[in-house]
């Protein structure tokens, strides 16, 4: 780099630039948090949904699935699972009847031995997630 461009100029760009864009990130973050009620479906965030999120977390569902595209890519997207499967009952039945020892040669979801209440909660959670306004992602029902 040329001699006219000094180290202290580079340093000032670093401190000034990072500071400015960090503040901009904070402003945008603040604005986003303020406008989330319009998109995040919080009016339907019931105690059962919150419980469902804990069931989701405590069984590490994200270790195989994606949720709104984030997670592992080993098993189907679940952000729209409620719409794809059609009902809470279909979700519950799928999770409930997974074979304990898997399916020979195939990927199979483990049997998590969830209680009826946990099953209902996680289905309720997936229904809630499917109703979040996330700019119409995924492109189609297959996720």
């Amino acid at each position: 780099m040329s001699q006219a461009f000094t180290k202290s100029m580079a340093r000032n760009i670093f401190y000034g630039g990072s500071m400015f864009f960090f503040l901009l990130l904070l402003v945008l973050t603040f604005d986003t948090v303020k406008s989330l009620p319009q998109t995040d479906n919080r009016e339907n965030l019931t105690a059962q949904v919150a419980k469902g999120k804990h069931v989701w977390e405590n069984n590490n569902c994200i270790g195989c699935h994606t949720l709104m595209g984030e997670g592992a890519y080993f098993a189907p997207e679940l952000g729209n699972a409620y719409k794809r499967m059609g009902s809470k009952e279909a979700i519950i039945a799928f999770i409930k009847f997974r074979p304990k020892n898997g399916i020979p040669g195939r990927r199979s979801m483990p049997q998590f031995n969830l209680t009826d209440d946990e099953l209902d909660a996680v289905a309720e959670f997936l229904k809630y997630v499917s109703e979040i306004n996330n700019q119409n992602w995924p492109p189609n029902i297959q996720g």
């Binding site: 986003t32 406008s35 998109t39 709104m68 595209g69 306004n133 996330n134 995924p138």
Partner: peptide
């Protein structure tokens, strides 16, 4: 990362 997770467009 904020395109499709329920954050503003």
């Amino acid at each position: 990362h904020f395109f499709w997770i329920g954050t503003p467009g």
